[in-house]
């Protein structure tokens, strides 16, 4: 049996649909995970009573359980307590919560590098701590944390493949689905590997652009 390119061409529309779903779910989840990261890191920085412990618990829970179990918990577990989400939103919720925990820690690393003197300068200018966080601490931390945040985003993108287990028609689902009927495993898996590689490359490229932009003020 040889590698059949013509077969792949006939499956291209289906793969594109899967790619589109993977893109949507991943892009939305990356944005939401960054939001969770900023909120969580802020709560920890300001040591908001109660919430700080909640965030710590959340981070530990996510980091110390398999993502597949988290996904099944959301998709099969939550309906039992009356929270039934669509395939799509179960996927987005799972990926966002998973990556959000890591983004909190990534941003905390960046925030730790923000000089205490800057905080005093902000206070002396009558900026509130919230304003300082938003206008000064977070932009500075973003630059420092960007490589780590990119890693998390890449992992999120790759982990979107888990969503095929609940039946969301993303890229891996499409491939597995077709293989079940056409038995063209090598073609399909090669194709989606190449697509995932390309997606990661694009993500890295975008992050590189962003980093260059954030880095500009710090060059002599």
């Amino acid at each position: 049996m040889s590698f059949d390119f013509d077969y792949l061409l006939t499956q291209w529309p289906a793969l594109l649909d899967g790619l589109w779903m993977t893109l949507q779910v991943s892009a939305l989840s990356i944005l939401l995970s960054l939001l969770i990261g900023v909120l969580g890191a802020g709560i920890k920085l300001f040591r908001l009573p109660g919430l700080t412990q909640l965030v710590a618990l959340y981070v530990e829970l996510i980091r110390n359980t398999p993502i597949l179990v988290q996904l099944f918990f959301i998709f099969y577990g939550l309906p039992a307590v009356g929270l039934k989400l669509s395939l799509y939103w179960s996927g987005v919720l799972c990926l966002s919560l998973w990556a959000g925990a890591y983004q909190i820690e990534n941003l905390r690393g960046g925030l730790a590098t923000v000089d205490k003197g800057l905080r005093e300068a902000g206070a002396a200018l009558s900026l509130s701590s919230r304003q300082f966080f938003r206008l000064i601490a977070i932009p500075i931390a973003f630059r420092v944390s960007l490589p780590a945040m990119l890693n998390t985003a890449i992992s999120l993108l790759k982990n979107s493949a888990y969503l095929q287990t609940i039946g969301l028609a993303e890229l891996t689902f499409v491939a597995v689905d077709r293989i079940a009927t056409d038995f063209r495993a090598i073609e399909m898996f090669t194709a989606i590997c190449v697509i995932y590689l390309a997606l990661v490359a694009v993500l890295a490229l975008l992050a590189g652009r962003l980093e260059a932009h954030l880095q500009r003020p710090f060059q002599q």
Partner: peptide, 22 residues
């Protein structure tokens, strides 16, 4: 505190300019 700070400017030994801003 914030009313007082609006009336009081401060200059530090190590400047503490916000590095990401022009």
């Amino acid at each position: 505190i914030s009313r007082v700070r609006e009336h009081v400017g401060m200059v530090f030994q190590h400047f503490h300019l916000f590095p990401h801003m022009s």
